[in-house]
């Protein structure tokens, strides 16, 4: 059953990329514990529009934790306090009546703030472009069952492939490193036999692009994995380091 709850929100407001941002305080009316964080913002925005104020800009889409569009720092934690949860799946029942929530955008040099809680994550697409694929044209594919993949290999690759590209790993990392994201991409494709022909170039090129985008280095704090809504394991970072060393040693370039 739905219960009402009162919260104080300190929300980051920033007009554009170059403007100086600031926190503003809000006390939204009529909140229910069955609302998600994003539904709370919808409701606050409706109030602000009715009052002639500028609503809060935040990004979201599927609202079921799979598209990777939403992402807010909630009390200093990417996607909030719960493990394995995206912002859209976080409900107010998680908080106590009278709590104060601080809502901020992802903060990283490679993710510039566009407006309020909305950031630019196009760096991830450019990393993907650098090698996050298997070069197979339509029409080239062999019969699907001609490539046998042991069940446990497929399952393990899947564990990396579930990355939703939300950027929480970067936001949570004190160095704003993208190693968990890159390692999940490289890990998924390098485990699958289809990905073997390009595995060395893939690891080298994606890491080079990651560095070029201005992401920081990994110092093994593992905050990334703790914040990851898909709970991608830090073991993929170890594997990525292994892939990279192997690629750098054997590469013919």
């Amino acid at each position: 059953m739905s219960n009402s709850i009162k919260l104080t929100l300190n929300i980051w407001r920033q007009a554009n990329r170059h403007a100086k941002g600031r926190f503003e305080t809000y006390q939204p009316k009529d909140l229910s514990t069955d609302m998600s964080i994003l539904e709370m913002l919808d409701s606050l925005n409706d109030e602000m529009i009715a009052a002639g104020k500028e609503p809060i800009t935040f990004e979201h889409d599927c609202r079921e934790g799979i598209c990777g569009t939403c992402g807010i720092m909630i009390n200093g934690m990417a996607h909030g306090p719960d493990r394995g949860t995206t912002t859209c799946q976080l409900y107010l029942r998680r908080f106590k009546d009278g709590d104060t929530l601080v809502l901020e955008p992802w903060r990283a040099k490679a993710f510039p703030v566009i407006k309020d809680l909305l950031v630019d994550r196009s760096a991830f697409d450019r990393i993907q472009m650098a090698g996050g694929y298997i070069s197979v044209n339509v029409g080239n594919a062999p019969e699907a069952n001609s490539i046998l993949i042991p069940k446990d290999v497929a399952l393990e690759a899947f564990d990396a492939a579930v990355c939703i590209g939300c950027g929480a790993c970067v936001a949570a990392c004190k160095n704003a490193s993208a190693m968990l994201f890159v390692s999940a991409k490289v890990g998924h494709l390098s485990l699958m036999p289809q990905g073997h022909p390009e595995r060395h170039d893939r690891a080298l090129n994606m890491i080079a692009q990651m560095d070029a985008e201005g992401f920081g280095s990994c110092t093994n704090t593992l905050e990334c994995s703790a914040a990851c809504p898909k709970e991608i394991s830090p073991k993929w970072i170890q594997r990525l380091n292994g892939e990279y060393i192997q690629a750098a040693t054997v590469t013919r370039r």
Partner: peptide, 8 residues
């Protein structure tokens, strides 16, 4: 086609 792309 999807298997060839590496869909797990």
């Amino acid at each position: 086609q999807c298997v060839a792309q590496g869909v797990p």
